[in-house]
Write a protein that binds this DNA or RNA. Structure first.
Lengths: 144, 144
DNA sequence: CCTAAAAAGGACTAAAAAGTCTTTTTTTAT
DNA sequence: ATAAAAAAAGACTTTTTAGTCCTTTTTAGG
């Protein structure tokens, strides 16, 4: 559904949201361990998200990644769009460029509905909303 | 959502369904033109579907691809599973291997619902059911 | 029996995605 | 000032997906 990069990005961002909520910063190493992802790879992804202002970072000792007020309000849909673009929310299920209401592919109408639900679901999920459940281990970001 | 291979496969199979419905066979060239796909690439995909008995083929002059009674009953979900596997219908949205009811990722429950709708939608769509609408150009399989 | 038309098979190349490593820059604390 | 800790940047390698081309096999029709 999403690219690997995007899956890691979402997991990382939710991890950062939870770990940085009291003003702390989280290092790449911690994040990589926390979500069980390849360290150098997640580093690249976070650099990208940071450049695009989706997350915040600070260099130097005691530096790391964190989320500001604005970032906590971003939704999972924002993260997906930042990494994978919005093809998944608006593209044709069969890959047709000009698929539309007036020139639909065979699954256009039904697919549109599903895409919308996916979008609404991700749009309504804010980065900060999983913190408590993550802390209580009611939700998980890494493989067992 | 689906791989390119899978998108082409679905379009090709629906094209064959429509064109072969009166006992005709359709050649790779016709299919490639009919769905605007790379000829040699769709050839590979159809060889694969044929080997797996999802579609039928005949060599030699007047040969080509067609669908038998059994194949016409297959659903789009069957095509997707044959090409992409069923990760999209059963995998975790965040790529976690052991995501489950008892060890859910943050989007597990909501994602499950969407996956199920996608599955139900594709499972209820039989390969033969688009023929008339395709013929009347109410539905399309190629870019304008 | 021969020819031509078709799919099947196999060996490639190209492009994109995933992943790794090394160096540079920034910053804090001593 | 310096050393160390951190992210940023850039150059890679590897793997997967997409796409192409050439040869072989099968088969219908003359």
């Amino acid at each position: 559904m999403f690219s690997k990069t995007c899956e890691y990005a979402i997991r990382a961002v939710l991890f950062i949201a939870q770990k940085s909520k009291d003003g702390n910063k989280v290092s790449i190493k911690e994040i990589a361990k926390g979500i069980k992802s390849p360290e150098y790879f997640i580093a690249k992804i976070l650099q990208d998200l940071s450049r695009k202002k989706m997350i915040q970072s600070a260099k130097g000792p005691n530096g790391g990644f964190y989320l500001n007020k604005q970032s906590l309000k971003y939704s999972l849909a924002d993260v997906v769009k930042t990494i994978d673009g919005d093809a998944i929310f608006s593209g044709c299920g069969l890959g047709l460029e000009h698929c539309s209401e007036t020139r639909p592919c065979p699954i256009h109408h039904k697919f549109k509905k599903i895409r919308k639900e996916l979008y609404d679901m991700l749009r309504s999920a804010r980065l900060g909303e999983f913190n408590e459940r993550l802390e209580k281990s009611l939700l998980h970001l890494r493989r067992a």
